[in-house]
């Protein structure tokens, strides 16, 4: 009985992965779907049909950025279908998502993570803190923006940036291809 219930919810439950029309209604900006499709093509072109692997590194954020990274995996956004995947180790990563002003206590960990990632590794500084230290800039406990520790290729501002802003930022940067 319970098993039947489970099947019912699984197959007949609400489907919420949104289509382009619905996104246009709820989002004022370009549709997430369109950005995702374009991103998918770009990734396929750049990586020969493989996907782009991302490793998230918290270098001192307020944890809001991490919540948005997690949100990218939920049914509304489901970035896997565009060829983007979060991975567990920097050794598998093509791209680092770095959030937060780099604190003194995390400087070494960030550098080690970057060194562990295979080259070339695209580094994305996500959020105002990661770009230049944000409101925490110049504090005794903060080193500063991510670029003070490792090279940064993409900057996505926001406090924190919304999921669609993250995706658009990645797409924009990949299209410039100057890594």
């Amino acid at each position: 009985m319970k098993f039947l219930q489970l099947l019912k919810i699984l197959f007949l439950g609400p489907k919420v992965t949104e289509n382009a029309e619905k996104i246009k209604e709820t989002d004022k900006d370009d549709s997430f779907e369109a950005v995702g499709k374009e991103l998918k093509e770009t990734i396929q072109h750049l990586y020969g049909g493989r996907s782009l692997r991302i490793r998230a590194v918290d270098a001192g954020s307020t944890n809001a950025e991490e919540i948005e990274f997690t949100a990218l995996n939920n049914a509304y956004y489901d970035i896997d279908r565009f060829g983007l995947t979060f991975v567990a180790s920097p050794r598998h990563a093509d791209m680092l998502f770095v959030s937060g002003p780099v604190t003194r206590n995390l400087e070494k960990a960030l550098l080690t993570t970057y060194e562990a990632a295979p080259s070339p590794c695209i580094v994305v500084a996500l959020g105002d803190g990661a770009i230049d230290g944000g409101i925490w800039k110049d504090s005794y406990a903060v080193v500063g923006g991510v670029e003070k520790v490792i090279p940064v290729h993409i900057r996505i501002p926001g406090n924190p940036p919304r999921p669609i802003e993250i995706l658009r930022g990645v797409l924009h940067a990949l299209n410039q291809k100057n890594f």
């Binding site: 954020s61 937060g100 604190t103 003194r104 206590n105 960990a109 925490w136 504090s139 005794y140 406990a141």
Partner: peptide, 11 residues
């Protein structure tokens, strides 16, 4: 812990 110590109290 205290990896993300940003110096909030001092700021």
């Amino acid at each position: 812990l205290f990896f993300t110590h940003k110096g909030v109290e001092k700021l």
